[in-house]
Design a protein around this nucleic acid. Structure first.
Lengths: 221, 221
DNA sequence: GGTCAATTGAACACGCGTGTTCATTTGGCG
DNA sequence: CGCCAAATGAACACGCGTGTTCAATTGACC
């Protein structure tokens, strides 16, 4: 029972029937999220999961198929949730450069505020397709509109390289914050500024865009 | 029996007595390198390793202590080898921006030429300290000298963020190449150009520096 | 109070990987 | 040829995780 949702730039994410999760399943999924973030997929076993969820081992088996699909569900749920909240926040912003700067900083701030979330993203953003799509669908639209409005100065053929630069530096920055080597403010502003400069935004302007007051992430519904 | 080696910028790598590896141990280490690259640390078991090395299971146990130290040895050997070769190539280059561009492209080209190497770097560059040090020690010197010569225009306090941007975008680019989404030439030049622009190098100059003929990596001894 | 679905937790069989031991074989070298 | 260190591979005990079954318990709801 899945419905398909068309996103801004020909990227498709599956909408899971999250609503159909009963309380027990929700606890299991939340526990799984924490464990995956801490230990990585291959290190999470059923017993740990049961204990973390405060549930008996048998309950796990009667509520999930296997670890793999559980992980997939958790990851795509995460991707969808973040994607929607960021998009919602973008409703009030038209400047693609400002949106990009804010997007970058949203991710980095959230990794700071919820280190489990940050760890999860950092571990799986490259290997999981839902998360990868979240990153690229988020940025592609704004990159293209920024290009055509002359705000960015890179070649169309470099789009994929630019996308990769953006997502990987966000991940690197999240890592920096998680390890405590930088505050999220510094790391977020620095990364946003550097990325904008790479795209052709003049230094002073890039700095300004990267250091505005960052609004709170809207919640969904 | 380890000797310490002082690198250019107060970064220390251990010199293993690689020479002391007998032929059997060398085969085991090389097999381990391949398996770690393919499957990740936690998925390599003794039986697989023995088969890949063309050796009996008992031989593994009498030649290594455990997987963990084996991995550590392999990783730091890799870091040292690459570090030395890149450094050697830099002997003939004085421009920090040209060195940085070439360094970035060396990594990406090598990942293409030896996909096992690329996979290993991509998997472990962030989590292994030897590999992390290789990245940062490689770049820090040139970043600082480029800063003081006015070639780069970023703030000293952003050094760590810049280092992170560089290493993570190289990793992202390696991923792109490994997945076959881009050729190493495009991906390498794009990444080098984008990074230089982020540091303040004007677009045309950045493009030129990122598209020069890339020399072969020197071999060591 | 009775019903029923969900949860519990113990028991079981199974596979896989570890690390050790050891009798046997191999192959290089004096 | 004989020596000896290294390599072999089978056997063993062990721990851990899986996935299944099932009788007993819980607790929400009518």
């Amino acid at each position: 029972m899945n419905t398909r949702v068309q996103l801004t730039h020909e990227v498709i994410l599956e909408r899971e029937t999250v609503e159909s999760l009963n309380p027990t399943q929700r606890r299991i999924h939340q526990a799984a999220f924490r464990l995956f973030a801490e230990k990585g997929t291959s290190q999470v076993n059923v017993l740990d999961l049961a204990q973390e969820a405060g549930v008996a081992r048998g309950t796990i088996y009667s509520n999930i198929d296997n670890m793999e699909s559980l992980f997939e569900t958790v990851a795509s749920h995460l991707a969808r949730e973040m994607h929607e909240r960021v998009n919602k926040s973008f409703d009030s912003l038209s400047d693609p450069a400002q949106r990009l700067a804010n997007g970058i900083r949203f991710f980095i701030r959230r990794a700071h505020e919820d280190s489990k979330w940050g760890a999860f993203i950092h571990k799986f953003a490259m290997s999981n397709s839902s998360l990868r799509e979240m990153f690229s669908s988020q940025a592609t639209t704004d990159l293209l509109s920024g290009l055509s409005s002359g705000r960015y100065t890179f070649a169309q053929e470099q789009l994929l390289s630019v996308l990769t630069l953006i997502s990987s530096s966000v991940l690197g920055s999240i890592f920096l914050v998680l390890e405590g080597h930088k505050t999220w403010r510094e790391s977020g502003s620095d990364t946003a500024e550097l990325v904008l400069r790479a795209l052709g935004v003049p230094q002073e302007e890039a700095r300004a865009l990267a250091t505005t007051e960052l609004p709170a992430l809207p919640s969904i519904d």
